[in-house]
Design a binder for these strands. Sequence first.
RNA 1: GAUCCCAUAGCUCAGUUGGAUAGAGCAACUGCCUUCUAAGCAGUAGGUCAUUGGUUCGAAUCCAAUUGGGAUCGCCA
Length: 592
Amino acid sequence: MTIEQTLQELTAQAVKTLYNLTIDPHTVTVNDTPKNFVGSYTVVVFPYTKAAAKNPEQVGKEIGQYLTDNLVFAQDFNVVKGFVNIELTNAYWLQTFTHIIHHENYGQAPASGKKIALEYIGPNTNKPLHLGHIRNMFVGHAVAAILQANGHEVHKVNIYNDKGINISKSMAAWVHAGNGATPQSAGLKGDHFVGYYYVLYNKIATQQAAPYREQGMEPLEAEKLTPIYALAQQFTQEWEQGKPSVRQLWQTMNGWVYEGFAETFNMLGISYEKAYYESECYELGKKLVLEGLANGAFFAKPDGSVWADFTNEGLDQKVLIRNDGTSVYITQDIGVADLRYHDFTPDQLIYVVGDEQIYHFKVLKLTLQKLGKPYANLIYHLYYGMVDLPEGKMKSREGKVVDADDLIAEMLQTAEEQTRELGKTEGMNPHQAQQLYKILGLGALKYFILKVNAQKRLLFNPRESIDLQGHTAPFIQYSYARIRSILRKFNQNFLLPNYPINHLHPQEIDLITEISRFRQAIHTAAETYDPSVIANYAFTLAKSFNKLYADLSVLNNPDEQTNTFRVALAYTTARTLKNALHLLGIDVPERM
RNA sequence: GAUCCCAUAGCUCAGUUGGAUAGAGCAACUGCCUUCUAAGCAGUAGGUCAUUGGUUCGAAUCCAAUUGGGAUCGCCA
C-alpha cells in the first residue's frame, strides 16, 4: 500500500472514530504538500466539517492528531485552514530510498497480462516523411514504451498506404518526365526522389488544368480532365487488374521509398515489429464488406456501390465499395483490423493517427460493430493534434511542409554549433562528438514535441531553432552528465544496505520524493496515453537535483557518510532520469 | 447546417478524481564560476485562467449559454 492510500484509510478511520461518519477511503483527498508549506502530504478535511459540526481548523487538528498517533511514519503535523500537512520521519524517507535504489527498474509495473497492438507511423509511399509523421512516430514510440513500463505487452505495427491514386500520380509523373532516372542517378534519398515526382505531378496537372480553371471550373474537377490525371487513373486501374508492367514500376518506386524511410527510422530510433500494406489488406476488407452485404449489415445502391447506414447513430451513410468495385480507405482498415486481431489476439487495438481522422475511426468502429466483429470495441484511436506552422496548417500539395530529414539535419547542426560554442567537445574524438550532437539534437527535437500534450495542436516555427536551454532535453541530459561525472570521480561502491543518516536535509527529502514519484508518473502517463507526463516528470526531477547540486556538495563533505549517501542519491537520480528519457526515446550522454 | 476539439503571463506550455497565495520555460532586468560540468542556480517583473451565469464549504478544473479559433461530415488517404 502506498503512503497516500494509508493516509486515506487512516483518515476514514479517524472520521468514523471521531465523528461517527462512514466514508469510502477512496474519497479522501490526499495531495502532495505545496512547497511553501511544511510537510509532505496533505489531507483535506473540509468535507467532514459538517458531520463534525466544528470549524475546519478544529477538525484538522483532531484528524491530524489521530493520523500522527496512528501512523508509524508520521513525525508531526500542522493545520492551515482545512488542510492537514503531515510530516514524515527520516526513517520513512530512508526506507523509501533504500527500496528504490535496490530496484534497478523502479517504476516498472509487474506484468498486467494485457496485450496491445499499437499502430503508428502509417505513411503514404508517394512522398517523404514530414513533421506530422515525426510527431506520430515520437508519440507512438513513447506511448508504446510507457505502456510496456506499465506492465502491458505491446506490439508495435506500421501500416503502409502503398496503393491508390497518390502513388499513381508519382508514377505518372515519373513516366511522363523521368527519362528513366533513379535515386542514384539523381543523387537523392529514395523517398525524396519519389516525392519530387509527386510534386512534379501537381505542377504538370496544374498547368494542364489551367484552361479549365479559367472557364471557372473547380480545381479538383479541372484536374480530372488533364492527360496526366488520365495516366495516373489508368495506372490505378491497371494496378488493380494486376498488369505486370504497372506492378513492376509500382514495386520499384515503392522500393525506393522504403529504403529512404528505413534510413529516417534508423536515424530516429524508430522501429516496429510488423508492417501491414494496404495492397495486401484491401481484398480482405472487400471480402468482409461483401459478407456484411450478404447478411444485411450493409446495403447496395442501384449503381452497385456498397454502403453502411449510420443515420441511426447520428452520422451519415458511408461508402465501403465504389460502384466500379474498387475499395476505399476504410475498406482496407477493415481488413487490417481483422488481420491484426488474428495475428496478435490483442486486448486493445491502438491507432496513433491524427485528430483529423476522428470521424474515420468512429465510423470504422461502428462498421465493425455492424459486422459483429469481436474486435470492434477493442479499437482505440489515440489521436494527436496537427502541427501548425506560423502561417497555419501544413499542406503537402502546396509544398508547405517541414521535411523530416531536413529538420533532423538542422537539429544536429544546431546541437553542434552550440556544443562547440560552449567548448564542450574538448577531449572528444570526432566520432564521440558526432554521437553527442546526435544525442543532444534528436533529444531536443523529441522533447520539444513530447513535452506538449499529444492531443493539443503544436506550433512549430521553423525560423526559430529549438532551444537547448530551459525546459528541454539537454537540460535533463546535462543533469545526467553532471552526475556521471561525479560518479567517475567518486569511484567507490556506494550500494550500502543502510545509511545511518540521522539528519536528512530538506533538499534530500525533496529529491527522494521526486524520485519516488516515477512509478505514479508512469501509471498516469499510461492511463492517459500521454508522454508529456513523463517529459514533465523528468524535467521536475532534473530541476530538483540541480538545486541540490547548487546548494549542497555531493562528494566534498567533511564526513564520508554524507558523501556516500549523496552519491547514492545522485546515482539514483541519474538512473531515473535515464529511464524516464528512455521512455521518450531520448538517449543520455556520459559527458556534455 | 450538424458533430467534435481548443481558449491559462508578451510567446510556448504545465496545472492530478474540484482544494491553500494559478506554476515552468523562453524573451527582459539583477546577482552567482579560486570548491563536484554556469546547457546551471538564485532573484525582479509579468495573470479579469475568453465572457456571463449555475452547482459547491471551495471552480482554471464540473454544467449551461455566448464569443473567438480549429477539425470533420469525399466513390481523397
